[in-house]
Design a protein around this nucleic acid. Structure first.
Length: 262
DNA sequence: AGTACCACCTGACGGC
DNA sequence: TGCCGTCAGGTGGTAC
């Protein structure tokens, strides 16, 4: 479920494997992923070019192409990337395949077709047009506190609202609220100052630890809720069991004993 | 204006 | 065994 930590890991992976390499061949898979572009345009834009740098805003990843345009990748629920040499290693559900002139290949993989591929000229205009808010972990505390305080719905809703702040989804909003000791059903505007600070701190800690774990739950601390997204599951930090309720239309996991409702 | 809800999409999984 | 319903969850449109 690619949220900011996952996409950040993809970004670093691309940075360490695929930059500055001439793209000799391009294959687009399912066209339903293409946003306001065509298979032909994507292929002709990328062929002969190269990715020079990458930029992440929220769950969106932009690769700047030599020549000035950008390749946009959004991963939906099931998107990922891969870099490999032999065609036999091509992942199932590869939807964009770039072959470099060193014979290595880059794949954007997406099992379900909830995601997006685009070629765009202007990154800022794209973000504006799609109303993608500032990246959550780049907000100052003051900006963050103001945004959460403005939310009329639950604090979880606001954290997940990509127009308000971008990058956090269902799994990491639960994780951050868990470490903050805040019930996800709390109203953002009801949070006291000290809890806003706890929330801001937990957001940074969780994202940092998740990125260090390469967004692999198995490499995250045992104290993380991510291992216990199962109703009634109990562990040291939530001995009486995890609750599951629909909050903001999502299946939300939290610990009723340690997360206080405001 | 801001919030809630459903469709989109398809693989995994549980129940019978 | 295999069919069916449900769930996963990011996004975007629509309803309220």
């Amino acid at each position: 479920m690619p949220e900011a930590p996952d996409v950040e890991v993809y970004k670093r992976y691309i940075d360490s494997t695929s930059l500055h390499q001439i793209i000799s061949d391009v294959t687009v898979g399912d066209e339903r992923l293409l946003e306001e572009t065509s298979r032909e345009l994507v292929e002709s834009t990328l062929r002969g070019g190269s990715m020079e740098s990458t930029h992440r805003v929220g769950k969106y990843l932009f690769a700047s192409l030599r020549g000035g345009s950008y390749l946009l990748l959004h991963f939906g629920m099931t998107g990922e990337v891969a870099y490999f040499k032999h065609p036999s290693e091509t992942p199932d559900y590869t939807q964009l395949l770039l072959r470099f002139d060193n014979d290595y290949q880059f794949a954007y993989v997406n099992k379900r077709i909830l995601g997006r591929i685009a070629v765009i000229d202007d990154m800022d205009a794209y973000l504006r047009n799609h109303q993608i808010g500032p990246d959550a972990v780049r907000l100052t505390y003051e900006e963050f506190a103001r945004t959460i305080g403005r939310g009329r719905g639950t604090v979880k809703t606001t954290m997940m609202n990509q127009k308000m702040m971008s990058g956090l989804g269902n799994v990491y909003s639960d994780e951050i609220l868990f470490h903050s000791g805040i019930d996800p059903r709390s109203k953002g505007m009801a949070l006291p100052e000290n809890k806003l600070r706890d929330l801001y701190r937990a957001m940074h800690d969780v994202v940092e630890i998740a990125v260090e774990a390469r967004a692999q739950p198995a490499d995250m601390p045992r104290s993380f809720l991510i291992h216990h997204r199962d109703e009634g599951d109990s562990f040291d930090q939530c001995p009486n069991g995890v609750a599951n309720e629909r909050v903001a239309g999502r299946s939300c996991y939290f610990c009723p004993d340690t997360q206080q409702r405001y």
